[in-house]
């Protein structure tokens, strides 16, 4: 039963990699990560923002909305969702955290529950910048081909940042709300 469960989780992660990254994860989860799956049962599952490259038209409203909301500055590079716009072929691929059931980033964090935390209400896996030391272990542990975790300097200190599903925002993720093409949706996961 346990084996069955692991496979399911691996596929789960891989499927989201396909949606968000455009390519499947080559390798499976490490032994260490698999062991951590056992702990996952205790972690609340969480919805995620899903980007649809067929509907996206690269306007980047999601990025500037995200950064305005979180950082009080509009910027593609402070945004927790990235749309890589290939201007000449008009291919738009989105990159945003999958909020994995088994959050490798959370397990990898040396200050688990202080820096990388699980939101009690929404289940969002989020980074508390006050505690984050910018060690990068979360990004390194991310199973996605390209980690949707980025780094910036805040008050002279390197910190990681990622999608937190706009925790605390009554209307949910702002990128989903403001996307004019409905290329972003919030997908619930329960159980």
């Amino acid at each position: 039963m346990s084996e069955q469960k692991k496979v399911t989780r691996r596929e789960f992660v891989r499927d989201f990699a396909v949606i968000t990254g455009g390519a499947a994860v080559g390798a499976g989860l490490s032994k260490e990560a698999l062991a951590e799956v056992q702990v996952v049962k205790e972690i609340a599952k969480c919805g995620m923002v899903v980007h649809d490259p067929d509907l996206c038209r690269g306007c980047k409203i999601c990025e500037v909305a995200c950064s305005a909301y979180h950082d009080g500055a509009c910027s593609s590079y402070l945004s927790r969702i990235h749309v890589a716009a290939n201007d000449l072929d008009l291919v738009f691929s989105g990159l945003v955290c999958s909020q994995c059931d088994s959050p490798s980033c959370y397990f990898a964090c040396p200050k688990k529950d202080q820096a990388l935390c699980i939101d009690k209400e929404t289940g969002a896996r989020y980074i508390n910048q006050d505690e984050c030391g910018g060690c990068g272990k979360c990004a390194a542990a991310c199973p996605l081909p390209e980690a949707p975790i980025w780094f910036k300097t805040v008050k002279g200190k390197e910190v990681a940042f990622k999608c937190d599903l706009c925790r605390g925002r009554a209307a949910g993720p702002i990128c989903v709300e403001l996307c004019p093409r409905k290329a972003l949706r919030f997908e619930e996961r329960r159980g």
Partner: peptide, 22 residues
């Protein structure tokens, strides 16, 4: 190529105004 941002004086009000204008 740039990795900075444009600072917003009042983000909540700005987001709300941009939404209204959109």
């Amino acid at each position: 190529r740039g990795t900075g941002g444009v600072k917003v004086a009042d983000p909540d009000e700005f987001i709300s105004a941009c939404t209204e204008v959109a």
